[in-house]
Simulated assay, not measured.
Amino acid sequence: MSSSQLPPQPLEKLVVSNIWDQTYQVLKERILARHFGANEKLLIPELAKQLGVSRTPIRDALNRLEMEGLVRTVSKVGTFVNPVMEDNVNDIMNSRLMIDLWTIDQLSVMDEELLASKFDALDALVEHAAASISEGPGINIELQSNFDLMFHLELVRMSGNRRNVEIYKSLMHYRYLNLGEPHVTDEMMMLAFRQHLSIYESLRARDFQAAKEAITKHLAYSRQNILNVIIRSGGEI
Rank of each mutant, 00 (worst) to 15 (best):
E112R: 11
S3F: 08
R232D: 12
R204T: 00
L197V: 02
K13T: 03
P57W: 05
D105L: 10
E154F: 04
L47C: 03
P83D: 09
L179H: 10
N18A: 14
S3V: 15
Q22R: 11
V184I: 14
M150V: 13
S202Y: 00
R34K: 04
V229P: 01
S2G: 00
L171V: 08
S108E: 14
V84D: 04
T79P: 01
S2F: 06
K212Y: 00
G235Q: 04
T23H: 06
V26A: 06
N146S: 15
I231H: 09
I231L: 08
N63T: 13
N161Q: 14
L101E: 08
T23N: 03
P137E: 12
P7W: 00
G180R: 12
L179N: 09
V184Q: 01
R72K: 11
E68T: 02
N140E: 07
G234T: 10
Q195Y: 04
M172H: 14
F208C: 05
P83T: 03
N164C: 06
L219S: 15
M150C: 07
I58Q: 04
Y221M: 13
L51I: 05
I226W: 05
S134G: 08
I19E: 07
Q9L: 05
E135C: 07
S198W: 06
L171A: 09
S4R: 10
R223H: 13
K212D: 07
N90I: 15
T216D: 09
A124K: 15
E68P: 00
L125M: 12
T56N: 02
R72Q: 12
K118F: 10
S233Q: 12
F151D: 01
L62S: 02
I92H: 06
L65F: 01
T23C: 09
M158I: 14
L27R: 01
D100A: 12
G160S: 13
I44Q: 03
L177N: 12
R162S: 15
R175I: 12
I99F: 05
D148L: 08
E86R: 14
R163I: 15
I167N: 11
E66F: 01
A33S: 13
M188R: 00
S132F: 08
A129P: 11
G234S: 09
D120Q: 11
L143N: 11
E40R: 01
L43H: 09
I104G: 02
A121S: 15
Q224P: 07
S145F: 05
I231W: 08
D60S: 14
L171H: 10
Q195M: 07
L155S: 00
G138N: 05
R232H: 09
M158E: 13
N63Q: 13
H196C: 07
M93Y: 09
G235W: 02
Y221K: 08
V74N: 10
Q9F: 00
D21A: 14
M188Q: 06
V16F: 09
R55M: 03
A130S: 13
E181W: 11
L43M: 09
P45T: 04
L32Q: 10
I237G: 02
W102M: 11
E112F: 10
I92G: 00
D207F: 03
